[in-house]
Design a binder for these strands. Structure first.
Lengths: 237, 237
DNA sequence: CCCTTATAATTATCATATAATAGCGATTGA
DNA sequence: TCAATCGCTATTATATGATAATTATAAGGG
């Protein structure tokens, strides 16, 4: 009863994640409407050619991210959009795969503008000695890559820089943004890499302010960075 | 082999959620260290007196929230703290249950200060007609409750007000904050309800600015509100 | 000493059976 | 006729046992 097609077509990830991904796609794209009851377990098992175990694990995964809700006798219902946890990296990955990404990028930029300046300010206040060392090393790589430019390398070091800022806030609620940001950066290569526009100056200002422990300066520097990258349109990979 | 004790001691929720909650508690409290391998499925099944089905669903739930990671042969490992999704309402609920809440409240306030002013500004720009109607109705209730004060009612209407602001942003990434905020408000009754300190004036300013479509005014008004509630210490329920 | 292969431990998946839940209709009594 | 109660049934929830896939570790060979 094993269907190798799904194994091959999907990634190397586990079966229930592949099934979850397919169901998520239908929900996120609107192919399955909100508040709608999806087919019963038995039907979906046949549809995906997987066991109830795998299917139920997929449904549980989507439930955890706020996409579904199951009840005996009544079935499994698609929850309304305000319950979908877009701040979950895996869900965000599925969203990005839909392709409607210029809009997602703009929405994400609006989030960054709210959260990153404050994160930089908090990092200036709370970064540990080790985090400052990491940030320092990362910025030096950044500086190097900006002079010997390579799009992929820049994305990686840029991502690592901002990731470290979030981790250095010392605030639990800022931590998840690190993963969300990484997911976005990986999906939008060249999001800020056009014609050498690496904004190294703005990054240096953020870096210096954090190292100096100057929260206000870090906040303002990060605002400037985001205002600079404002108009750039993303290129999906 | 069914153990009724767990059914009774836990809530009315499903078995795997109860098991997940217990494991989450051990992880979040540090009783189980980060990067540590937890006991195998068989051992945990006996420990919790549940079937492998229930236990595995519990582990899958925690995996989805970034707390665990499983591999064949190697086992199930506790992920490092920067992978825990504190912006998941269910996980936050577990965190709150640990009791160490004054600190969590302060961290959450630091998040609100970053996100809420921008959310208010976006809401002023993007709220739909229906959302404005809802916000209007909610503020009127708020106004009423502030004059006929009741702590629980105030919490509910205050929560609903800020929730609506997030939903009115029209930005997917702001939506999850609505649920996170609700979870926090429900857990910290009287977080801003001391001696009639309902901040109705500040709320009115936010409300008016959003209805008028004045983003800058909405942002500033929300900043004022959060600076006002700054020093208040929470009381856990 | 390194590379390959075999082993074993653990999770992953499958299959089937039984229990709990709750919508819905039938039945009954006023 | 209406309303409350009871029983039926579809669906998910949980349990159990078996088999497959994965990979760290050890064994063996060059």
């Amino acid at each position: 009863m094993h269907n190798p097609f799904i194994q091959i077509s999907g990634s190397k990830r586990s079966l229930h994640v592949q099934v979850a991904r397919e169901i998520a796609r239908k929900i996120l794209s609107g192919e399955v409407a909100q508040n709608e009851i999806i087919p019963s377990e038995m039907v979906l098992c046949e549809q995906f050619s997987v066991s109830r175990t795998a299917l139920r694990e997929a449904i549980k995964l989507l439930t955890s991210k706020g996409l579904l809700e199951s009840k005996p006798k009544v079935g499994t219902r698609v929850k309304s959009r305000d319950n979908w946890n877009f701040l979950d990296a895996q869900l965000l990955d599925w969203v990005i795969d839909l392709g409607d990404n210029a809009f997602v990028y703009q929405e994400f930029l609006a989030l960054r503008k709210a959260i990153e300046p404050e994160a930089a300010a908090l990092a200036a206040q709370n970064a540990t000695a080790q985090q400052r060392i990491l940030l320092s090393a990362t910025f030096q790589q950044m500086d190097y890559v900006s002079k010997n430019f390579d799009a992929k390398q820049w994305m990686e070091v840029d991502m690592e820089f901002h990731r470290l800022v979030f981790l250095s806030t010392g605030n639990s609620f800022y931590l998840p943004f690190a993963n969300v940001l990484c997911t976005m950066f990986k999906s939008f290569i060249s999001h800020s890499s056009e014609k050498g526009g690496t904004c190294i100056g703005e990054h240096r200002a953020i870096y210096s302010a954090i190292m100096a422990g100057d929260a206000e300066k870090a906040r303002e520097a990060n605002k400037r960075l985001l205002d600079t990258t404002n108009h750039r349109l993303p290129t999906s990979n």
